[in-house]
Design a protein around this nucleic acid. Sequence first.
DNA 1: CCAGAATCACACGTACACGAATGAAAATGG
DNA 2: CCATTTTCATTCGTGTACGTGTGATTCTGG
Lengths: 190, 190
Amino acid sequence: MPAHYSLTETEEAVNRRLGAFPIRREALAAVSNLHRAAAAVRQHLENSALRVADLTWSAFVVLWVVWIWEEIETRHAAAEAGISKGTLTGIIKTLESRGLIQRSQHPDDRRLALLRLTPEGLALMERLFPAFNDEEAFVVGALEEHEALDLAACLRRIVTHLEEHGEQRRNDLRRQTPVPPRRGGRRRTE
Amino acid sequence: MPAHYSLTETEEAVNRRLGAFPIRREALAAVSNLHRAAAAVRQHLENSALRVADLTWSAFVVLWVVWIWEEIETRHAAAEAGISKGTLTGIIKTLESRGLIQRSQHPDDRRLALLRLTPEGLALMERLFPAFNDEEAFVVGALEEHEALDLAACLRRIVTHLEEHGEQRRNDLRRQTPVPPRRGGRRRTE
DNA sequence: CCAGAATCACACGTACACGAATGAAAATGG
DNA sequence: CCATTTTCATTCGTGTACGTGTGATTCTGG
């Protein structure tokens, strides 16, 4: 799904439209390319390694997290996978119905649920992971190994920065401009 | 939504589980951090600059593309926004119902639809974009300007590489292992 | 001990997001 | 010309994805 206009054309169009605005161009370029790259990588992995197992990206990430930690509480699995608990519930349901994952109750705290791979899920990951990692290597194939490591480090600094200061920043903004509630969310039963 | 386990803990767990597999670690780290960063950045922007206008990320990207090109065919808008044509249809519907965008028919080819911002949409973007760019600057705030530019360049190389060689790669894989059709997609009317 | 606060998994409503199917329209090719 | 093929936006089915509401369960201060 390549872009239709060339990078040069887009650059010219942006300049025409944004000439009057003072812009932090390096920030615009970094954020824009970040999402373009993430989408392209996800697309490639879903259509190569994951296609064979008929898994979506998110489903694979959840399997990966559970595999790595062997047994994990759902709230931690959601945090590690980078999705909300509500989203995780749906994915678990899908993976459970396919016999790849199993839920059990925490022995001490009955509010908690624990996740584990089934033997089928374990076998799938042991078969799938090498192929997945091969495709990861392919997507960074245009980079030298040290460049990929620098890239990873740079991205991690962004994540850390947002984890440490993002909430503060958003709160400050809300103080200046009160924000409407986000759309979606369960409606009050009236 | 920070991760629950520390990076060190995760590293140890990964080593325990993957000790037996030969891994391209720099690729794993780059791809993993790429998605973590993209999700964190998107989350921040949706909950800061975009929250004020009650726009989702995808809706904003579509508005941005149409703004930059002034008038654009839907298929090109989808390519530029990095979403499928089917997804674009739904987003257009939302934006049209909010009076931010308008569709019209191509004068020469009646299969094509053209997109334009309404005056309200234009006013929104002129008001919203500076605030959005401020937040983009915030998310790369942990990076020096030259680092952000290097990052953008690196990411662009990944995108270019996938656009140039991704399809070939996926076709080669399919020759080795015939893949099942993706789940989802309209079912044949039988 | 026990009332209120906190936290949990999950249900639910809205909005993407994809690829396959579909039907309309335009290009192609004899 | 007219049938075939191609190209287009859209519809449809499945699966995330979010944040909020809900009820069950546990924690906590008095």
